[in-house]
Design a protein around this nucleic acid. Sequence first.
DNA 1: CTAAGTAAGTATCCATGGAAACTATTTTTT
DNA 2: AAAAAATAGTTTCCATGGATACTTACTTAG
Lengths: 145, 145
Amino acid sequence: MDNLQSAPIIIGKLLNIGGMLQRHGNRILQPFGLNQQQFSIFFEIAKAGKVKQKDMVNRLLLEKAHVSKVVKKLHGMGLITITASDEDKRSAWLAPTQEGKQILNKCRGIFKEWNKQWSKAVDDIELNSILENLSHLQAVFEDKI
Amino acid sequence: MDNLQSAPIIIGKLLNIGGMLQRHGNRILQPFGLNQQQFSIFFEIAKAGKVKQKDMVNRLLLEKAHVSKVVKKLHGMGLITITASDEDKRSAWLAPTQEGKQILNKCRGIFKEWNKQWSKAVDDIELNSILENLSHLQAVFEDKI
DNA sequence: CTAAGTAAGTATCCATGGAAACTATTTTTT
DNA sequence: AAAAAATAGTTTCCATGGATACTTACTTAG
């Protein structure tokens, strides 16, 4: 099969898989009152320890309006703190709370379990090949989109 | 890297790429008054030639309520016909109109051009390996989700 | 040093899509 | 053949997220 034939099929499959994962993530996170996107923003905040909204926008390539709303929600849920920044009064620092970290760990555990499940069906070599392929694709799309 | 380390990264990348593609698809299709999901339903109807809503639900793994709404929209836009079915009065046959087929071809052309663009950055061998990987993953997730 | 331009976030509008309850029909059970 | 269960689609509710315009603060040009 040549490039022009496989390219659209690849796109179709990526969209399909992406949708499945997103819906699955939403379902898993439902008990925590979060969805997949909200969690990924929360996760990034926790990973960074201390960030501003614009960092999230850059890292996750999301709309700043969207990030703003999610940040407000996370704050309302007591998962993050928002501390005014001295250098730039337009923005504030975001950091996970103690409670936030606990919830994060619970989620991490659930995801880990699920990852263990599905990755059993794929051997190590293939998994690494997938990772390489996806990293390349990610770079290509970030560039071409 | 072992399975348990790469698995979550793979999921993260799939979600990220899926999101990018969806947003890109939405942007491309905007002039036609459709979004990526609506187009994919329309595309499936056209590909099949004559189907019922439940076929779309099964093939695309979407919510039937959602499909119902999109079908109504496509019909309202004059892209498909809805013909009552004799065997089962609960359901109706869906088929693309002449105009629908024309619009579909236009979109196909645009997507083809874009596919040509990005796939230049990936050689044939890698593209085939990606296709294999994704097919496997798709099957795994359909099964494990 | 002020005016114009840019940047970080917010508010608002609106189509979208998931969930659940509902209607109408068909199939299965007894 | 009547009752129960299953199926196809629809309706309604509501959180979501993209787009745009706006506010406030910062930066740079003249």
